[in-house]
Amino acid sequence: MSLSIEEVKKIAQLSRIKLTSEEEQRHAVTISAVLDYMKILNEVDINGVDPTFQVTGLEDVIRVDESRDCNIIKELMAQMPEIESNELVVPGVFAEVIEE
């Protein structure tokens, strides 16, 4: 298998996704199969070829930086999971919980 359970745990942590041990097992197997298949690209001669990051050929698309009407504050607030005194509630960024 090209991807170990340890590696799956590491990328799951980087991806901010909790996985059960069954999920870790399944992803190690299925992702390994996908990554193995990708080796087919090693047979392509890419010497002197530049990567394509976009296909339109458009460059430096700019627009005037001006304010626009956006009267959807109430609707946006209504989508928030937790509100207190008209503000979004989130856990503290630096409030680390020390694992036992």
Binding site: L3, E7, I11, L14, S15, I17, E23, H27, V34
Partner: peptide
């Protein structure tokens, strides 16, 4: 969706 995020992150 999880699989794709994991592959992409990797």
């Amino acid at each position: 969706v999880k699989r794709r995020i994991l592959i992409g992150t990797y």
